[in-house]
């Protein structure tokens, strides 16, 4: 059985080792880029079917962001939408035989969480200024400062491990079942994997929205679990 936690470089470009997730991500980028370029080349006031789906997707993301943040979703639309779309496509790329989802490797998840982390800082400082943003760590009292800093870091790790664990375990379980019984048996597990992949993409995007919203909003940041279970 392969070690699911380590990756081997496929080839090197100069000194840079290129691993399998990077190649798959390039493929996804190419597919998404070409698709969106072609699909949005001839936009009309009277929409075609593809355009209707795209508009539904964009407006749904805007609606979700607006619901969570109670504000104009315009600055966050592209970030949240890209995160959701990329994770979704990456998770579902396991349907193609021989391809492992990039999100099954912790480096991709860490990259996503890092981007979210930077975005939280970026939008928080951009909205409140450096002093204002740092002051939110002292809420409700200065005693909470260490706890708030720890929370900031742990929730980023939580993002990484949640996505990584879900996708990786799905891939791992399917590979185990495949080694036991190759035909038909993994199909329900793969279906479950699709559902998990979609739900995890949604959760990652929503949590990113909640974190950014908490950094931007006037109220002190709520616990993410509370926001989700509401």
């Amino acid at each position: 059985m392969d070690n699911p936690l380590s990756i081997e470089p496929l080839f090197h470009i100069g000194p840079v080792p290129i691993t399998q997730p990077v190649v798959v991500t390039w493929a996804i980028m190419l597919a998404l880029g070409v698709f969106s370029f072609v699909a949005t080349r001839h936009l009309r006031i009277i929409p075609t079917k593809t355009q209707t789906v795209l508009e539904l997707f964009v407006s749904t993301i805007e609606g979700q962001v607006r619901d969570v943040m109670n504000g104009d979703p315009k600055p966050y639309r592209a970030l949240i939408g890209t995160i959701f779309l990329f994770i979704l496509v990456a998770n579902w790329s396991s349907l193609i035989p021989g391809i492992e989802p990039p999100t099954a490797h912790i480096e991709t998840d860490a990259a996503l969480a890092l981007i979210v982390f930077v975005a939280i800082l970026w939008f928080g400082i951009g909205t409140r200024g450096i002093k204002g943003y740092l002051a939110t760590f002292a809420e409700p009292t200065w005693v909470m400062i260490p706890l708030n800093i720890v929370e900031q870091i742990t929730r980023t790790f939580s993002l990484i491990v949640r996505l990584f664990g879900n996708v990786m375990s799905g891939v791992f379980v399917i590979s185990i079942v495949l080694s036991l019984a190759g035909l038909f048996v993994p199909i329900p597990l793969m279906a479950l994997d699709l559902l998990t992949g979609a739900v995890q993409a949604y959760i990652f995007a929503i949590l990113a929205t909640v974190f950014i919203g908490a950094a931007v909003a006037e109220t002190p940041s709520p616990k993410p679990q509370e926001d989700i279970s509401q």
Binding site: T19, G81, T82, I115
Partner: peptide, 18 residues
């Protein structure tokens, strides 16, 4: 290396999609 490349990739994808 993979982490860095993936970060860059996602950022490029972000720009592309935006």
């Amino acid at each position: 290396w993979t982490l860095g490349l993936q970060t860059v990739n996602v950022l490029i994808l972000l720009w592309l999609l935006a």
